[in-house]
Design a protein around this nucleic acid. Sequence first.
DNA 1: AATTCGGGGAT
DNA 2: ATCCCAGAATT
Length: 353
Amino acid sequence: MNYTSTINIPQFQEDLITWFESEQRILPWRENQDPYRVWVSEIMLQQTKVDTVIPYFQNFMKHFPNLEALANADQQDVLKAWEGLGYYSRARNLQSAVQEVVELYDADVPNDPKQLGDLKGVGPYTKGAILSIAFDQPEPAVDGNVMRVLSRILRIEEDIAKQKTRNTFESVVRELISQDNPSAFNQGMMELGALICTPKSPSCLLCPVQAHCVAYRDGVEQTLPIKKKKTKKSSHTYFALVIQDDAGNFIIEQRPEQGLLAKLWQFPMVSTNEVDENHLSVFIQEKYQTDIDTVETLEPVKHVFSHLTWYLHVKMIKVRGKISLNKNMKLMSKSEISKYPLPVSHQNIYKQL
DNA sequence: AATTCGGGGAT
DNA sequence: ATCCCAGAATT
C-alpha cells in the first residue's frame, strides 16, 4: 500500500512549514539548537503536555545547565527536580545516558543514529527528534501527534496502539519529510497535532494542510486515528503510616530500586491484604519495636496512575521511645522530608501534617 | 505482542 | 469516568 502516491509532497511541505514558522509557540527549548536542551526537553515531553513541562524544564536547566552538571549531580537531586513529573525512570535513564556521553563522546551528544539510539531512554521517537531538531537530519520523529495527523491526512486506518504501526508512519515520513528543513517539518507535524489536528473536534477550517487531507475530503476525520482500547486498571488499598516519635520526627522509607516510583521516598505503606484495621497497632508495635501512644485517622488519599489506582488509608501514629528502622528507612523532621523526592500521593499526605 | 511505568488537563 | 499526552523498557 503506497499511502503517499496521491499527495503533492513539495506543496505539503511548504504549507506545513510556512504555517509552523508563523504560528509556532514560543517555548524555552526552542531558544536554540543546543542538543542537550533538545534532549532534555524531548525526554520530559514523553507522554507529557507542553504546559506541564515548561516549568520543569526551566528549573532543570537552572540546576543542570549542561551535560557535565547533570553527569556530576546527585541522583536524588535529579529525582527531586523530576518530582511530580512522573515516569521517573526517564530521569534516571537520562542522567545515566548523559554520563555515558561525557565519558564515551567527550561530552558531545552524538549525531550518529546508532550511537544516539543506544543511549538509555532514547527510543525511536526521541532519536529522530534529536537528529532532526538539533542536527537538521531528515529522520522521522513519530509520536502520538504525528500518527494522528498522518492517519487523517493519508487516511491510514491501522491500529496506532500496536507498536508495529509506528513503522508504517516512519516510512511515510521518510517520503514526506523536507530535506531542507526537517526540523520545522517534524516540529510542524507535532505542533499541528497539538494546536489544530486535535484528538476530538479538530479545527479543520483553520488547518494549513486541509487541501491535502483525505480524511477531511471524505468526512471521516473524527473517526481517525483507529486505536484499540486498553484494559481496565487494577486497584490497590494500603495503610499509609505517618509515624511520629516523641521528638516530633517522622519515619520515611525509600522505595525499591526497580518498579513503580523507584527510589522515591514515602510514608511507610502496608497492604490491607497483609493487615486489617484491628491488628494495625499490633503490626506497628512488632515491626518498629515501639510503643504506640495515639492513633488518628487522617483524610484518605486516592491516587490514579495510568495502569492502577491506589487507595490510601492514612493513619497518624504517635509512638514513644526508640524505634527499630530497616536500612531503607530514615527518621526525619517535617522540613527535612521536603528535601526528598516524594510521589504526588505522598505529597498529599505531607500536606495534611 | 502485551504490560509496566505518573500525573494532569481536556472533554 | 475516559482519553491522551513530543514513548521507552521490560517481559
